[in-house]
């Protein structure tokens, strides 16, 4: 790989392994994973339940330490960084979207969205001002005072997207972003996500089972049994392969 190609990478994963448990109960969940996540792309990780998708994004996001291998995210060698440094790295460079939204129920939408900025140490006033701007971008300008329980699932995921974007992270990690949504809302959220989250210097990594959203990806990596079996570039001329629509058949 040339230096130019390397610069285009958001995350470079080489030989990453991860096991859980001890002794005879020890299970190897990731078995020498290699993956390149390119800047400007939406990359989807697909595969059957238990294949290691979530463990892989946890490692790339810096929320879980790998046992071995190399991991470079936007030029930072996470394997060599201290826990505190990784925590700071996450606060500044990673945005998260969770399957269950994970919005704090006692906070308003604006307050929820401002959380990453508060973690960075911004004042509440400035953070909420910025949060309102991002909520407007995701079409939630009129809902800023509402609490999550007063919103539909689709609206909650829009708030979660705003929260993931508010601090302008370089890498956005999504765990089943449409799993809790119906087809229509899932499509709306992905359209929105593609529109506001994709950027030249930003990468989006999505773990999903939802084959209805595969066509939003630029790249799809198929996983099974702790390994990446195939990687496909997707565009108008190259739709996602049919067999990926039934991940259990990978």
């Amino acid at each position: 790989m040339t230096n130019d190609e390397s610069k285009q990478l958001a995350a470079r994963v080489r030989g990453i392994s991860k096991s859980f448990g001890d002794g005879e109960a020890r299970i190897k969940v990731l078995k020498g994973i290699d993956l390149d996540v390119r800047r400007g792309d939406i990359t989807m990780l697909v595969g059957p339940s238990g294949c290691g998708k979530t463990t892989l994004i946890s490692i790339i996001a810096g929320t879980l330490a790998a046992d071995e291998g190399e991991l470079n995210v936007f030029g930072h060698d996470l394997r060599q960084m201290s826990k505190a440094a990784i925590t700071r790295f996450r606060a500044h460079h990673i945005g998260f979207i969770f399957q269950a939204f994970n919005l704090i129920p006692t906070l308003t939408c604006a307050e929820n969205v401002s959380v990453p900025l508060l973690i960075q140490g911004l004042s509440a006033h400035k953070a909420e001002k910025r949060a309102r701007e991002v909520l407007a971008q995701v079409g939630m300008a009129d809902q800023i005072k509402r609490r999550p329980s007063q919103l539909s699932g689709g609206q909650q995921q829009r708030v979660a997207i705003a929260r993931a974007l508010v601090h302008e992270p370089k890498l956005i990690i999504c765990d089943e972003p449409t799993a809790a949504l119906d087809a229509k809302n899932g499509h709306v959220v992905m359209e929105l996500f593609e529109h506001v989250a994709r950027g030249q210097d930003r990468a989006v990594l999505i773990v999903t089972h939802d084959n209805r959203i595969f066509h939003h990806a630029n790249r799809i990596a198929g996983m099974d049994d702790g390994q990446i079996l195939e990687v496909h570039d997707v565009d108008a001329d190259h739709p996602p392969p049919e067999h990926l629509h039934a991940p259990e058949r990978l």
């Binding site: 996001a61 929320t63 505190a84 925590t87 700071r88 790295f89 996450r90 606060a91 500044h92 990673i94 998260f96 969770f98 269950a100 994970n102 704090i104 959380v115 990453p116 973690i119 960075q120």
Partner: peptide
């Protein structure tokens, strides 16, 4: 715990 975990994932330190 789920929300605290989310805060931790988003970069909130143990100290915070």
């Amino acid at each position: 715990m789920r929300h605290l975990g989310a805060l931790k994932a988003m970069g909130a330190s143990n100290g915070t």
